[in-house]
Simulated assay, not measured.
Amino acid sequence: MSEHKSTEPSKTTHFGFKTVNEHEKEKLVAGVFHSVAAKYDVMNDLMSFGVHRAWKRYTIEMSGVRTGHRVLDIAGGTGDLSFAFSRRVGPTGKVVLADINESMLKVGRDRLADRGVAGNLDVVQANAEVLPFPDDEFNVVTIAFGLRNVTHKDVALKEMLRVLKPGGRLLVLEFSKPTNDLLSKAYDTYSFKALPVMGKLVTQDADSYQYLAESIRKHPDQDTLQQMMYDAGFERVTYHNLTGGIVALHRGVKA
């Protein structure tokens, strides 16, 4: 009697505009950020003309983080938000900088050490879909420019809800959909023409910034992400468009 072999096809997902097997995406995304980690902050300033700093300041203000809070900064990369949060929570609070990518974490850890951050901050390599933290652990969870790289966004959102304390807040800062047609067309031209050229000049890697432009287009729009957060169990979900909807900040609360 011959052995039965499963004919179930491998599940696929998108990596930018390409279709890949789900198990491949994590490795491909890791390769992107390993390639650009050393110049990540320089490229952020160039790509956004420095405006990403204002987007992050707005996120920090909307978070409501205060002294003694516990904060999880998912996909925290080079540590911009973690640094600001560590100053806000003070010595009685705790900030966890989490990222799936080892290269990004190393850059973040070194930057934070250079800036004198120590006692109230931990650095953890973690997958947003399987967070290594107990239930009801954090007052605030943030994920800035990271959700679009997650394969199963619904799973990750439920994990973020799980680790929040009741009454805790999730803030998702992410590229989104421009609200004006003219701005959208100009943004498309900039994204697909200028970004890969910048990436090649600064990081010797045009492909990673081509992926960046493509991954933004595949990310759910504002209303879709709002509904996804409701579906995951969040309440009072709102969003605020920034820079004409090029970026949006979504905010949800755990009951």
Rank of each mutant, 00 (worst) to 15 (best):
K11H: 09
E22K: 15
D73E: 02
G79N: 10
V95K: 00
V107E: 15
N44D: 01
A30C: 12
G16W: 01
D41Q: 04
S86W: 08
K39I: 05
F83D: 01
G64C: 08
L28Y: 02
R111E: 03
L28Q: 07
L105G: 08
S103F: 05
E22M: 12
A37K: 01
V96K: 01
F83N: 06
K106P: 00
R53K: 15
S82A: 15
E61G: 06
S48L: 07
T59D: 03
F49G: 09
V107C: 05
W55T: 13
T59I: 08
L72M: 01
R53T: 13
R53P: 05
S82P: 06
S63R: 01
T12F: 00
G77F: 13
N101R: 05
T59Q: 12
E24R: 03
P9Q: 10
N21G: 08
S103R: 07
G68V: 08
A38E: 14
R87F: 06
T13E: 04
M43R: 09
R111Q: 07
S86F: 10
H23V: 11
G31P: 08
M62D: 04
E8H: 10
T19C: 04
M104R: 11
G90Q: 02
M47Q: 04
T59H: 06
H69V: 03
Y40V: 02
M47C: 06
R87S: 09
R111L: 01
S48I: 06
E24W: 02
H23P: 03
T19M: 05
T92M: 12
S86Q: 00
V29L: 09
